[in-house]
């Protein structure tokens, strides 16, 4: 819990970053607002996903120098990545909440429960995604560019294509279609299953990457 709390404190103090993280999803939402509101809402999901994953990226890279010291201080590696995830999920919920309210009061005729589920999928997937990028690419510039690329692909790729299922936020698009276009439950079920699988995979990759980075090296014997 201490790691989660400090993760949250550290990010919340970056007021400029928070403002920009709120601005991007808002821009995604507003840019299509005059056209088809459904597209606005879908874009908002991607925007929130990008914002949370970027916050996770910055947090993970910022912790690179202290985490080995915390490991020596007695933390286990899963204490560190689970604590960070918990803090990022709370942040994601705080970032998403005003946008859920915005959709609720700025639109009509949507399935708002499903909109909330799609947003939840975005937040829960985005946090470990950003952490994973931070483990793999230890510089913020490269990590941010990779996340932007992922977001761009997410928006461009035809969601009905096979390759779209390999994108991390496909679940939110499917659930979003159910919520916006009032389709049958097939979209909801596919989206929920995809979301669950992606979340589990992301968590597994984060656990592996974190444990590998903070592993006890074989040359060091402790007595």
């Amino acid at each position: 819990m201490t790691v989660a709390e400090m993760t949250l404190r550290e990010i919340v103090r970056r007021r400029g970053v928070i403002a920009l993280l709120l601005l991007l999803p808002l821009a995604f939402y507003l840019i299509r607002r005059d056209q088809y509101v459904g597209q606005s809402v879908r874009s908002l999901f991607i925007g929130v996903g990008w914002a949370v994953s970027t916050a996770a990226l910055f947090s993970t890279i910022g912790a690179r120098s202290i985490e080995p010291r915390l490991r020596l201080a007695g933390y286990r590696s899963h204490d560190l990545y689970l604590g960070r995830l918990a803090g990022l999920w709370v942040l994601g919920a705080l970032l998403a909440a005003p946008f859920l309210l915005l959709v609720r009061f700025d639109t009509s005729g949507l399935r708002y429960g499903a909109v909330s589920l799609a947003m939840l999928c975005c937040v829960v997937i985005a946090a470990p995604l950003g952490m994973l990028v931070g483990y793999v690419l230890p510089r913020e510039m490269e990590g941010t560019l990779l996340l932007l690329t992922a977001v761009a692909l997410q928006m461009i790729i035809d969601p009905a294509s096979r390759i779209a299922k390999l994108t991390p936020f496909w679940s939110s698009r499917e659930i979003g279609t159910y919520a916006i276009d009032h389709t049958g439950t097939g979209y909801l079920v596919r989206g929920a299953v995809h979301g669950a699988v992606v979340i589990l995979l992301m968590l597994a990759f984060v656990a592996i990457a974190s444990s590998a980075r903070l592993r006890r090296r074989s040359h060091l014997r402790r007595a």
């Binding site: 550290e10 990010i11 103090r13 970056r14 910022g62 120098s65 202290i66």
Partner: peptide
């Protein structure tokens, strides 16, 4: 150098 969290 480093080893701390700048915003804590």
């Amino acid at each position: 150098e480093d080893g701390t969290v700048p915003h804590l």
